[in-house]
Design a protein around this nucleic acid. Structure first.
Lengths: 251, 251
DNA sequence: CGGTCATTTGAAATCGTTCAAAAGGAGTGG
DNA sequence: CCACTCCTTTTGAACGATTTCAAATGACCG
């Protein structure tokens, strides 16, 4: 049951750290402002724009991407419900990449001022957002490894593992299944593979019994098997946080 | 003339923002503690370790890297003089990657407590370090694009452009030349190419007159030409900061 | 001067791309 | 409900970029 706008974000952050009741309420309040609805392929913000506010994904998927002059596109990150675009990006003058939605999506907008106030008034939130930011960096590094070292089969397996686990963390899996609202072309732009090869590699994964993919519905019958195939080590997601430690270090 | 330990860091940060005399002095003081000397291929910290302190590269190059179970290695970032390893990484419990030096290197160690104090007492430094952190993320995203979309020739050109410009920002270029204390194998582990192919591609770059590479000395006779070949857009380095703006926004 | 490591070169094998076309699915209007 | 269209997925076959294996050459160090 999705209660408030910040519920997925809170759920994710609590994987890592305890949040006080006030922290959670402050997050809910901050996220309760204007909500914008996007249609598939619409941009949230474009390369060159000045960051305006913080965007919190409520429903649907978005991505960070970059276009090269000659039309090639790289998707550099997936933004899932509960993910925030650039809690601190407004330190920079202009975006060096674009953010676009993949499916229809609802996005809550949090003003820069509100965000700064939130961080200043709530050290616990500040710390949790630090963690979130560091994890995002770690994911980006892992993608570098994925693109640099793994072959097509491992690469796709790895990506699907990561997405499934991240969706789990925000309560968007049902048993062994989740939504995958992404075309094969988009998977190609993410993994640096041609659409054709994505298609063939997905077929291999299916034939190996590692995934069931029908339309936008992904099922991973045996996550451990897929993990092994991908040489997936989840340490970079840092879900082993100190949420269970008695007291937190301040940040 | 290199004056203090923090001089390269300060020089880099000042590309983006003004630092007050006190800010600079505080940075120098923080960096004036213990200095450790590393020999080629030594590790500064390993995957799985708990981050101990902040490491500031004084001389020499280091890199972030990750080993896969089967021996493949991905270099995910180069750390140059003036770069800091993980100003805030100690929020996390353990490293998800290793940091090793490439050449001999000198590294200043700044304790966690000192670092926190520095950030708290000096909003200007805090903001500058935010910028630095965001730029590091942007570089990581650009590497994702580099690996995902560009072919061998563009990939190496792009990397060399970036390194040259980053070295310029900390005063480590001489005219059109700089040091490149990196083997072709390491370039391969960075760009996801085999050593053999790195070699052949460097030969192509030489033949095209885009670089002169003798031993560890790189010369780029015409940076604009190399930029064009690489489709290099420096916007992600955010060197167009607001250093020249009259007053800074707080972060 | 020998030893070790890095660079260079050649040739065969492989993985992934490209081009082209067919088949499947979802939405729209008649 | 069908016909039509657009988009995505699937398949085939030829081509090309990069890897792999193997060996030679060059550079540096003690």
């Amino acid at each position: 049951m999705v209660s408030g706008h910040a519920s997925r974000l809170i759920r994710k952050l609590e994987q890592f750290t305890r949040l006080s009741a006030e922290d959670k309420e402050a997050l809910e309040t901050a996220a309760s402002g204007h909500v914008r609805q996007y249609r598939p392929r619409e941009d949230v913000i474009r390369e060159g724009d000045r960051p305006r506010q913080v965007n919190l994904i409520l429903d649907g998927w978005a991505c960070r991407y970059k276009m090269l002059e000659d039309g090639r596109r790289q998707i550099m990150a997936f933004l899932l419900p509960g993910d925030m675009c650039d809690a601190r990006m407004f330190v920079l003058r202009q975006m060096d990449h674009s953010i676009g939605v993949l499916s229809t999506a609802r996005v809550a907008e949090i003003s820069k001022e509100r965000m700064l106030g939130l961080i200043e008034a709530h050290p616990g939130i500040s710390r949790a957002l630090w963690w979130d930011c560091l994890v995002e960096e770690a994911i980006q590094r892992e993608w570098t490894t994925n693109l640099g070292q793994r072959d097509a089969f491992e690469r796709l397996s790895h990506l699907l593992c990561e997405l499934f686990i991240r969706l789990q963390a925000v309560g968007l899996t049902q048993g062994h299944s989740c939504e995958l609202p992404v075309t094969q072309e988009e998977l190609g732009d993410t993994t640096g593979m041609s659409t054709v090869h994505v298609n063939r590699t997905l077929a291999e994964l299916r034939d190996a019994g590692l995934i069931v993919l029908k339309g936008k519905q992904l099922t991973i019958p045996d996550l451990d098997a897929l993990r092994t195939a991908a040489m997936f080590n989840p340490n970079y997601l840092h879900l082993d946080g100190d949420a269970r430690e008695p007291h937190a270090r301040d940040a």
